[in-house]
Design a protein around this nucleic acid. Structure first.
Lengths: 216, 216
DNA sequence: CGATGTGAACGCGTTCACAGCG
DNA sequence: CGCTGTGAACGCGTTCACATCG
């Protein structure tokens, strides 16, 4: 009888991560034509527990039917909406090196609604060349193009020493969220969302775990 | 007077992540020729708090001098050892697509001691071609080469539907740690260390945060 | 003095257990 | 009866505060 709780502005980072996992699992289930799934079933496919699944979802509303579970197409739609994937997100890519080009071609981004609408680089050899049909532009044109194309998310794949300057310009041009692949900490206003992806950190976590096992 | 605590086999994932950040900061400090740093200074450069820095480090020993702080070269060496980076790690890359090739060329891996010693793919168009001087081999040769070259870490950058089979073969061939870029959950024995990197999850976390701010 | 190292207090995410409803 | 939704209990990582020592 209580209306679904107003979407909380802040869910814990772990919850948001798991919502992504649920979405992935629901995509698979929908593709398999499965109509209904229990918290148990979702938990198994996402590597968590049934209680955790129910707790996470209940933060945003009551999407299941007692005794039945969750309807896959409905829950899929709900989780997409919760994650903000019920719209398109124009994205800019700064850095047209190997990692940047790889991300550009990553099909899952587009499937989720992320559309790379601008690519920037300062290397004269790259400017003017194309990535998947989009021309690489010099960074000087960044502010203008970001605004013109309504871009709100920037992906940084430039060398560490250049990342802070790029981030600052992105924010000044209207970007509100940044995915940073450069191995350096960015200093930005607190209202800007920053997500750091450190590839070497991931390998180092493996290294730590493997080395820990060999210690006397 | 108490000897440094025996290195704990299990530190929390957050602690390990932060150790990587400290290492990065220490690298920079050393390059700048800074001789000493306080927990305060390290915290500022890593985006955490002084108390957190001291707690993290004290898990592994007493590396500082009261009233002085930490000596940068010494701490650098210690943190590298804690993370298991005082040795070389032979790595295999499975999947010579865009992401795989980008990782291959990522200089920070080699700087940290990770050496890609084998590259595999099943695409006949790629087999025999080279990535940074290493020849791409078919997956059929994987078990043999993994063993021959003493590889303990595998990086998976194949499509989701192929990832589980690859992971199983890697483990059967002696790999103990896996970095998985494929958007699928791997089922492996518990003694195997698995680290999932989900690029779309990172973007979805941004999308969630930005969308949450726009809600009424 | 100044900054580390650390037990204790705190807060928060996870887990539990059961009430509630189809 | 089955499974969800959820308050309460729990455990753990973070923060605090201070004793400690160069």
């Amino acid at each position: 009888m209580t209306p679904p709780p107003a979407p909380p502005r802040r869910a814990s980072p772990s919850t948001v991560r798991r919502l992504s996992l649920y979405l992935r699992a629901l995509d698979t289930l929908a593709a398999e034509g499965v109509g209904t799934v229990s918290s148990q079933g979702l938990a198994e496919r996402s590597g968590t527990t049934p209680a955790q699944v129910r707790k996470d979802l209940s933060l945003f509303g009551s999407f299941g039917r007692r005794g039945m579970g969750y309807e896959v197409p409905d829950l899929l739609h709900r989780v997409r909406a919760i994650l903000g994937l019920d719209r398109r997100w124009p994205v800019a890519l700064v850095g047209a090196g190997r990692i940047g080009s790889a991300l550009f071609a990553y099909p899952l981004f587009r499937e989720r609604g992320f559309e790379i609408r601008a690519v920037f680089d300062n290397d004269p050899a790259k400017i003017g060349s194309c990535r998947e049909g989009l021309e690489v532009r010099p960074v000087t044109e960044l502010p203008c193009l970001i605004r013109e194309r309504g871009i709100e998310i920037g992906i940084i794949t430039v060398p560490a020493h250049a990342a802070q300057a790029i981030a600052t310009v992105l924010v000044e041009s209207g970007v509100r969220g940044i995915l940073n692949f450069a191995p350096t900490r960015l200093h930005l206003p607190p209202e800007i969302e920053v997500n750091e992806v450190s590839l070497s950190m991931e390998l180092e976590a493996l290294s730590f775990a493997l080395a820990a096992r060999e210690r006397p």
